Amino acid sequence: MTVSIHGGHPGLVELLVDGKETGRVPLRGHRPQVLTGELPTDPPLPVIVRVVPGPGTPRCTAVIDGAETLMSPRAF
């Protein structure tokens, strides 16, 4: 699972699962965003990703089956 944050005008936040886009929302400055998707398990498992794009390093938290996990940032 990957969250990509694209700056520019307009900015965009994408949720990728196994390299496929499963969610996207417009980037609205430094305001937190929420994306939803599914993990390809049997049965599919819903996931909620909370994104805080800034200021500073973006922070992403995944909520899967009620458990909240901080995702590690990587610059590309």
Results as ranks from 00 to 15, higher is better:
53 P>E: 01
15 L>C: 08
46 P>S: 01
73 P>V: 07
38 E>D: 07
34 V>R: 12
12 L>A: 09
5 I>L: 14
29 G>P: 14
63 V>M: 03
14 E>F: 07
73 P>T: 11
6 H>K: 15
50 R>E: 09
11 G>Y: 03
57 T>P: 10
13 V>G: 08
30 H>D: 15
37 G>M: 08
21 E>G: 12
60 C>L: 05
12 L>G: 04
14 E>C: 10
21 E>A: 14
43 P>S: 08
69 T>C: 03
51 V>A: 01
26 P>V: 09
37 G>N: 04
58 P>H: 01
47 V>T: 03
25 V>A: 14
11 G>S: 01
54 G>K: 06
13 V>K: 06
65 D>A: 12
25 V>K: 12
18 D>F: 05
51 V>W: 02
39 L>G: 03
48 I>P: 02
57 T>G: 02
53 P>M: 00
2 T>G: 01
5 I>M: 12
63 V>F: 00
13 V>W: 02
13 V>E: 05
35 L>P: 08
26 P>T: 09
13 V>H: 06
72 S>G: 11
20 K>P: 02
69 T>M: 11
71 M>Y: 00
73 P>Y: 01
33 Q>P: 00
53 P>C: 09
46 P>E: 03
38 E>Q: 15
32 P>T: 01
51 V>M: 04
51 V>Y: 06
55 P>M: 11
17 V>R: 09
2 T>K: 12
72 S>F: 06
15 L>E: 09
62 A>H: 03
52 V>F: 08
37 G>I: 10
27 L>M: 11
60 C>P: 04
50 R>I: 01
49 V>T: 00
29 G>S: 00
60 C>G: 13
64 I>F: 07
56 G>R: 07
55 P>G: 11
71 M>F: 07
69 T>Q: 14
12 L>R: 15
35 L>M: 09
4 S>Y: 08
28 R>P: 10
76 F>M: 12
58 P>T: 06
40 P>D: 08
28 R>K: 15
48 I>F: 00
76 F>Y: 10
37 G>F: 05
66 G>W: 03
42 D>R: 14
20 K>H: 15
16 L>V: 01
45 L>P: 04
43 P>L: 06
58 P>Y: 05
30 H>A: 12
73 P>H: 02
62 A>Y: 03
14 E>K: 15
2 T>H: 11
53 P>H: 04
30 H>R: 08
31 R>F: 00
1 M>D: 03
66 G>T: 05
27 L>N: 07
